[in-house]
Amino acid sequence: MAIVQCPGCSKSISNKSTVCPHCQLQLKEMTAEQIERLANKQRISKQQKFMNHSFLALILFLGGFLYMYWRQPEADSVQMMAAQGAIAVGCVWYLVNRVILIYLKKKK
């Protein structure tokens, strides 16, 4: 008996299971092609989620940068710290999401 991931919910299940205890997916009635197609759909959905997150991170980064450019807040003011924080968080969040996307694409 081995532990595998359910193609429907990606949770750990036994390879002998006929029904996933988490999402109630009927594994016994599915062909290998259907299981692979479902796993592919799950992987693409995960990639799209991280792509959306990277766009949000980019918007946060650009928002902080553009605020600093147009408004030119005074040094050591709350506005300056907020803009710098948005730039830092957006940049790190974007980079982490891009690394995860590269990992997911190589995992194919």
Score class of each variant (00 low, 15 high):
Ala2Gly: 05
Leu56Phe: 13
Leu101Ala: 06
Met81Pro: 00
Gln34Cys: 02
Tyr69Val: 01
Ala82Ile: 13
Ala57Trp: 02
Cys20Glu: 04
Gly63Ile: 02
Ile87Phe: 03
Lys107Gly: 03
Met68Trp: 07
Ile44Asn: 04
Pro21Gly: 14
Cys9Ala: 14
Met68Ile: 01
Phe65Arg: 01
Phe61Ile: 02
Ala75Phe: 07
Ala82Met: 14
Leu25Tyr: 01
Leu58Cys: 14
Tyr103Lys: 09
Glu33Gln: 15
Cys9Asp: 08
Arg98Glu: 09
Met1Pro: 10
Lys107Phe: 05
Cys9Lys: 08
Lys41Met: 03
Tyr69Gly: 03
Lys46Asp: 07
Val19Leu: 09
Tyr103Asp: 03
Lys46His: 13
Phe50Gln: 10
Leu95Lys: 03
Glu74Tyr: 09
Gln34Thr: 04
Gln84Val: 05
Ala57Pro: 03
Ala88Leu: 12
Arg43Asp: 10
Cys20Asn: 00
Leu27Ala: 11
Ile13Glu: 06
Gln47Ala: 07
Gly8Val: 07
Ser17Val: 03
Ser45Phe: 06
Lys11Leu: 08
Trp70Lys: 05
Lys108Leu: 05
Ala39Thr: 06
Val92Arg: 04
Ala86Asn: 14
Ala39Gln: 15
Ala39Gly: 05
Ile3Phe: 10
Arg98Asp: 02
Ile102Glu: 09
Leu25Ile: 13
Val4Gln: 12
Ala57Asn: 04
Arg71Met: 15
Arg98Val: 10
Gln79Met: 09
Gln84Arg: 01
Pro73Lys: 07
Met68Glu: 10
Lys106Phe: 07
Asn15Ala: 08
Pro7His: 04
Asn15Glu: 15
Glu29Val: 09
Tyr103Ser: 13
Leu62Gly: 10
Pro73Glu: 06
Leu104Trp: 03
Val99Glu: 01
Gly8Thr: 05
Leu62Ser: 00
Gly85Ile: 01
Leu58His: 07
Leu25His: 06
Asn15Lys: 09
Ala75Trp: 02
Phe55Asp: 13
Asn40Ile: 04
Ser14Asp: 14
Leu27Cys: 05
Lys106Tyr: 14
Ile100Asp: 01
Val89Gln: 00
Gln84Thr: 02
Gln24Tyr: 02
Ile3Gln: 12
Gln5Ile: 10
Leu104Asn: 02
Leu58Trp: 08
Tyr67Gly: 04
Pro73Val: 11
Lys41Glu: 08
Ile3Lys: 09
Glu33Val: 10
Phe65Trp: 08
Glu36Asp: 13
Glu36Pro: 01
Gln42Cys: 07
Ile35Tyr: 02
Ala57Met: 00
